[in-house]
Amino acid sequence: MKYYVRRAGELVEVETTETGVRIAGREARAQIESVPGSERRHLLIGERGVPLSAQRTDDGWAIEIHGRTVQLSLEDERTHTIRELAPPHGVRVPREVRAPMAGLVLRVEVEEGQRVQAGTGLVVIEAMKMENEIRAEAAGTVATITVAEGQAVDPDDLLLAFAGEEGE
């Protein structure tokens, strides 16, 4: 699978392979072992060992090597594409939420009139046998929901709209 990794302000594409990873175009044999009951991990890149410790974070992993911690946020290819298609963050609060891809509405997770926070799950669309949760970009109140569970949608179909008077 392909991942988009954000680290120290830069975006790196990493693809997993049968034997390891392809990072920035270079292929490397790699595997990781976990020490039971510990945050310690042993990473092998080729034959080279790198002891480190790892902790899950909200959007990825915090990896500590010799006392220095790197925060890495990870997106797999699907999530990345969805986010790329969505309107850019913070420019303008979107009033409408549209389908980023073709698929089947699996669940509607909000109700009309419901107040939501940024990041609240709104609609789950199944596409290519994967569930994709569409989340609120900003806080607001759901005004109308225009899809129902089980309904097929095409890209850019309107899913729901937020109330207009909710200025942020």
Partner: peptide, 22 residues
């Protein structure tokens, strides 16, 4: 800054761990 080599190691570790979860 951090040595590129260690940064890459951290990146590879994170991806492999993420993959393990999936």
């Amino acid at each position: 800054g951090m040595e590129e080599e260690l940064l890459d190691a951290a990146t590879i570790a994170a991806v492999l761990l993420e993959e393990e979860c999936h």
